[in-house]
Amino acid sequence: MTLRFSRKQLIIPYSLFMVLFVVIPLLFIVYYAFTDGSTGGFTFGNFLKFFSNSTSLSTLIISIGIAILTTVVCLLIAYPIAYILARSNFKKKNVLLMLFVLPMWINFVLRINALREFLDLIGLLNKAHLFNTVLGMVYDFLPFMILPLYTTLIKMDKSLIEASADLGGNAFTTFTKVTLPLSLPGIVSGITMVFMPTMTNYVISDTLGLGHITIIGKLIEDCFGSRNDWYLGSAIALVLLFIIFISMLFTGGFKDEENGARGAGIW
């Protein structure tokens, strides 16, 4: 082979693809968000339309509420599981962890359908729309919380805990003063992997909330579907991008390269 190239030139095809299909499409959203659908001129009208409408505002609030609730519940379930797994002397720790994250590989629509059939069987499907939606979100995203927590907890230096005990700390103090702060990176990356998708995964809220629960993702989908208002849809998408940006500033999601990747490291 007499291919002559420099190694850094290899960045070109990749960057070209990303500019063409990631950056430019985002600029399209910005353009549409600030464009008046009827006149084609510049406007803030789409944002006004969104923020002055009580239905869409309540959708935004409900989405954030569902996302917070899901994230908290996921954390409360995932933390003890990850903690026990990481600390235990089980010989087959890896197998157990595998059992907990295995569902990640099953198509999520099929998994949600399984939960829907189960809720139908126990007679809950038609009764508790909000509960079912949150349950579905927790069901879908739990592995994404367990995995980063387990990874940080297993890496933790165990002698620190012994040191805390030697210095007179009881189990509770040791947990709150040593283990919890040290597992913070895992908690943060778990939150990033659960919070944002929960705000927008309308497949779950549609399937389990039976159309009674509208989240922000559904609102955008409607704008591109039945409501046919791409301008408003793009404006809402920009609002969403803004929320993502803010939450990234809080969680430092821009910094961590390895943990931030959804599901990276599971193979």
């Binding site: 990631v22 499409p25 985002l26 959203i29 944002m196 993702g217 991008l241």
Partner: peptide, 22 residues
């Protein structure tokens, strides 16, 4: 390039989806 890599990872899927649709 790293910033571009992170966009679809961080971004909500619905936003990626409509940007492509546009």
């Amino acid at each position: 390039a790293n910033v571009m890599t992170r966009i679809p990872v961080i971004n909500a899927e619905i936003v990626t989806a409509i940007s492509l649709a546009l």
